[in-house]
Amino acid sequence: MNTDTMIFLIRNMVPFMIPLTIVALGGMFSERSGVVNIALEGIMVFGATFGIFFIYFVPDLMSPQLMILAAMGIAIISGVLFSWLHAYASINLKANQTISGTALNLFAFAFHDFLARLITKTGTEGVSFKNVFRIEKIPFFGDIPVLGDLFFKNVYLSTFIGLGILVVASFVLYKTRFGLRLRACGEHPHAADSVGINVNRMRYWGVLISGALAGLGGLVLIIPTTVEYTGTVSGYGFLALAVLIFGQWKPSKIFLAAAFFGLMQVISNSSGLAFFTSLGINKYFYQIVPYLTTLIVLTFTSSKSASPRAAGEPYDQGKR
C-alpha cells in the first residue's frame, strides 16, 4: 500500500468517524445515566431534518461557516426536544425503553418524509442542498507537511467541533461532580438516591445530552457525504450503538472504535481504488465489510462487557 492510498483512506474516514464519535458519546451519556437510547438513529434523522431544512431555506443570507454553525444549533435543539419524548416515557412513565426508542425511530423517518413532501418545491422526500461548507485550507496549520494535507486542508468545521466534544465529554464524565453523579445513577441508582442525588433529574440530563449530540451527529454525517438528504442516516445510529459497546462506554475507547468503523466504511466505499482492485477480492466482500467486522469485533469483545449495570431499568424507588 503506497502513501497516496494511505492518505486517501485516512482523509476519507474522517467524515464517517466524527459523526460516529459524536453520536456514540451521546449514547454514552444516556446509558451511563441508566437509560438505553435505541432512538439514536431516529434522533439523528430528526436533527438532520431540521438542520438541512434550515440550509435549504436560507441559502445565501449568511456566510457558509456561520450558516453551518446555525444549522448545527438547530439540529442540537431539535435533537434535545425530540429526545425529551424518550426521557419522559422512560423516566416519568417508567415505560419500556426499547418500545419508546423504537417509536421515536419510526416517527422520525415518517415525519421527515411527510414534512419534505409538504414543503419542498419538488414534493419529493429528497431535500437537496449546496455543499459550500468545506474549508479549503486552514491558515498556518495547512502548511505543515503531511499532517497539514491530512487534517487541515479541505476539512469541515464539524471535525474540530467533534474533537472538542470528545475532550469536553471525557472531562465532564470523569472530572466533574456532574459526571460522577451521572455514572452513579447508571450503576446503582438506589445508592445515588440515598446520598441525595435526584436520579430522575440526572437521567433527564443523560437523555437530553444524548439527544443534543445525536441531533448534531445526524447533520454532521449528512453534510460532507451527500448533497441530497432523503431522511435516512443509513443505520449510523445503530452503528453508533455498536461503537459504544465496542468502546466499552469510555470516551477514549469510543474514539478509537469510531476510527476503526470509519476506516472500514472507507474501505467499503473504495473497492474501485487501484490498490484494492489489485487484491482481486469480490465487490460483495467490500459491501459487507463494515457490518461483518462489527459482528466479528463484538464477538471477541462483548464477553467482558462493562455496560452500566442499571442501564435499561426504570428507576423504582420502592424496589430494593
Binding site: G235, A242, I288, Y291, S302, S303
Partner: peptide, 14 residues
C-alpha cells in the same frame, strides 16, 4: 459470547 442481540441483528440485516 454475550453479544447484544440488537446490534448483531442490525448488522445481519444489512
Amino acid at each position: 459470547r454475550n453479544v447484544n442481540e440488537v446490534i448483531s441483528a442490525i448488522m445481519l440485516n444489512y
